[in-house]
């Protein structure tokens, strides 16, 4: 089999806190093939954003490997990394905080071009900026506007244009639509999917919104407290969720269905436990209704249940 575009192997990211080691990402292994979208889902604090940042080395991994086309980018020196980042880009969550308020739209989009010395002269550079703005659906007249003059949807388009500036192959999208209204969210999702069709991009799409992730992803990884608890193709995951946490997560989404009105929600009891010095065993065990003795000891490895469907729960059937 060909080498996958991106392969994450046993990636760990711990943060030191006064209370102990915070296991933000704990031994996560995932692969993303060219042209595919991997959705990473989970609730706040599960380590999904940290995972996205660590993959691009915006945070240094504690241990583990990130193979991009077969080479481990965690071993790259600074210069090699700058070069690699042209192909590995990121779209951030908050379109308000991720744009420099003192730069105009054109300057923001041109910044990666300047950093990477992509163009000989200003004219050529601004032509490219114009092209990029057209690609993401921003009117050329906005070139000299500043972010504060624009609404959230347009700002997020700037973020997308900036990420596309260096012709990337792989983009980490960290909750790119969660700050937007539904009608604008739909516009941005359509844009991301169109770009993928046209340019063959791969995405790692981080979100807490399962309906968004279902729409855009080919594969989904569900995270809970730093661990990947389930990984499968999108269709398979939604058809046969195996891990009790995935099942609970799916049941908690308010779908549009008025026949469920007045009925009891199947709610998960309790809250997420602390990721600082986590107890051994399954991290979900304290909230799991099927938990038994065995769950509190030993490490839960991802096991292949059926072709391409991995679950970190020995009792999943």
């Amino acid at each position: 089999m060909a080498t996958p575009m991106l392969e994450i192997k046993h990636l760990k990211k711990y943060f030191s806190t006064p209370a102990g080691q915070l296991h933000a990402v704990d031994d996560v292994s995932l692969t993303i093939e060219a042209g595919q979208t991997l959705g990473v889902v989970g609730e706040s604090g599960c380590g999904k954003s940290t995972l996205g940042r660590t993959v691009l080395r915006l945070l240094e991994p504690t241990s583990g490997e990130v193979l991009y086309n077969g080479t481990d980018i965690t071993k790259f020196n600074r210069k090699q990394m700058v070069a690699a980042r042209q192909e590995l880009q990121m779209i951030f969550q908050d379109p308000y905080a991720s744009l420099n308020p003192r730069l105009s739209v054109a300057e923001i989009i041109a910044e990666p071009l300047i950093v990477n010395k992509k163009y000989k002269n200003k004219k050529e550079m601004y032509e490219r900026v114009g092209q990029l703005m057209e690609t993401v659906g921003l009117a050329p007249r906005l070139m000299n506007s500043y972010p504060h003059e624009l609404d959230g949807g347009r700002r997020q388009r700037i973020g997308v244009a900036r990420a596309l500036a260096t012709d990337p192959r792989f983009i980490v999208c960290d909750e790119p639509v969660s700050a937007l209204d539904v009608s604008i969210q739909a516009q941005i999702l359509n844009l991301l999917m169109d770009l993928q069709d046209q340019q063959g991009l791969s995405y790692m799409f981080i979100t807490h919104d399962l309906s968004v992730v279902k729409h855009i992803s080919s594969h989904i990884a569900v995270m809970y407290l730093g661990r990947c608890v389930e990984y499968a193709e999108t269709e398979e995951l939604f058809a046969h969720p195996m891990h009790p946490y995935t099942q609970a997560l799916l049941a908690a989404i308010p779908v549009i269905d008025i026949t469920r009105r007045g009925k009891k929600w199947e709610t998960l009891q309790g809250e997420v436990t602390s990721p600082i010095n986590p107890a051994p065993g399954c991290r979900f065990a304290p909230r799991c209704k099927y938990a038994c003795e065995g769950c509190h000891a030993g490490n839960m490895e991802l096991l292949q249940i059926s072709a391409g469907h991995w679950v970190a729960c020995p009792y999943a059937r």
Partner: peptide
């Protein structure tokens, strides 16, 4: 509004958002 929602039980490839702002 309904067209903008990526629904869990639907399989439409593209969403049909409301144009404009």
């Amino acid at each position: 509004l309904f067209g903008s929602l990526p629904e869990l039980n639907a399989t439409a490839k593209r969403l049909s958002p409301i144009n404009g702002l």
